[in-house]
Design a protein around this nucleic acid. Structure first.
Lengths: 209, 209
DNA sequence: TCGCTTATTAGACGCTTGCCTTATAAGCGG
DNA sequence: CCGCTTATAAGGCAAGCGTCTAATAAGCGA
């Protein structure tokens, strides 16, 4: 009774948090909003609502909702790339195993889970019309492909009859993206295990000796 | 001077049109809006603005903007599927040629041009959260894959060493989708010609004798 | 030529959004 | 223990949206 009557159940969020934590909260809420509600529903106010803070706080940490979106995109790319590297690198001894780990990481719940995957679609959409988003997308794509290339070139050298190396890598990359979309559209139709198995099959087929 | 002073330059759109034409106008404007402005910018009012009609007209033809979106999706799928069939069917004599025509049609400006391609991304996004959009997406996907399968099974029978047929088709389909995304994200990085060439290469590689 | 159907416009209403400004209090340094 | 920084909340404002209603006129049939 002494406390100022917590009338609204979600209101007393008056505890301070370190700026880093709050920023992370808002970024996480943004991802969740994008995944569940799409571009239209991921409004600044809704994001703050989901993060459990007042809508004025967004402006205190980011210039505007668009900026928050961009920063979320950057961080998501950075995190995914780091995890992809971490998954694939410790297996330099067995290139096939390294590639397999890479595939597993790509379809991990951390990036392709139902709470995330929808956000990528929104970012890609932004990348077509906004230069800043396109820059992030380009950089991410280039680094991801470089990593893939590094893994692939460690495969046992194959004969001369196969595809040009550039074509094979482009095709493998396309397979990854395509299966990812497939998985995105319905994780029932093409479950994760099959996606990974198909990636492995593609490697064997595209880089056959 | 006699006419009622056409003060607003875009206002005197008072000419009647057949309902079918107007509906088509609105659908076309919707696609354009989605491609240029994304999900957020494709508001009912903006669509009508771009179609050159007053915003009240939307309600006269569609229950609400969402319904217009869904109908646009349906029609786009229908049109694309029809054109894919038309492109591939008259070449039953040469299966490879039929597949090539199919690829050309997939990357045609009609479906992957800058004025269209962005719309698909929005539809896919909707398909994740809305059942009606998902139904359209599923149906379209199934029919497209059935067509692809029909084309592929006409290839000269290959030996026993290759991939299971289901895997090969799934991979070819993934290659198509993946290259499509690549092309979407930047038609500079992977131009259309290269996409088509890579598809042809994938066919040779996946369905080798 | 007239009148009826209906395609089309114009406007009002309530709601939500993004932006900004002001007021509060949490928690650290002294 | 006090006071300053600043994280946080709250509210006001204009603009835009979706929905709905009422008014207008285009063009066909009689």
């Amino acid at each position: 009774m002494a406390s100022p009557a917590p009338q609204s159940p979600a209101a007393p969020r008056r505890r301070r948090a370190s700026p880093l934590v709050r920023r992370a909260d808002l970024v996480a809420a943004t991802v969740s909003c994008l995944a569940r509600l799409g571009a239209k529903g991921a409004t600044g106010r809704e994001i703050c609502r989901r993060a459990g803070v007042s809508h004025g706080l967004l402006r205190h940490y980011f210039r505007n909702p668009d900026n928050l979106l961009l920063e979320t995109y950057e961080q998501l790319c950075e995190d995914m790339l780091a995890q992809l590297e971490a998954a694939a690198m410790p297996h330099a001894a067995d290139p096939l195993e390294a590639l397999h780990r890479y595939f597993v990481a790509v379809f991990s719940d951390d990036w392709a889970g139902p709470e995330i995957i929808g956000a990528w679609m929104v970012f890609w959409q932004q990348a077509r019309s906004r230069a800043d988003f396109a820059a992030v997308s380009d950089s991410f794509n280039a680094r991801q492909r470089a990593l893939l290339q590094r893994l692939v070139t460690q495969l046992p050298q194959r004969g001369e009859g196969g595809l040009p190396m550039a074509d094979a890598i482009a095709l493998l990359s396309a397979v990854l993206d395509g299966l990812w979309i497939e998985y995105y559209l319905s994780d029932q139709r093409t479950p994760r295990g099959r996606c990974i198995a198909l990636c492995d099959a593609a490697v064997r087929r595209l880089f056959a000796a």
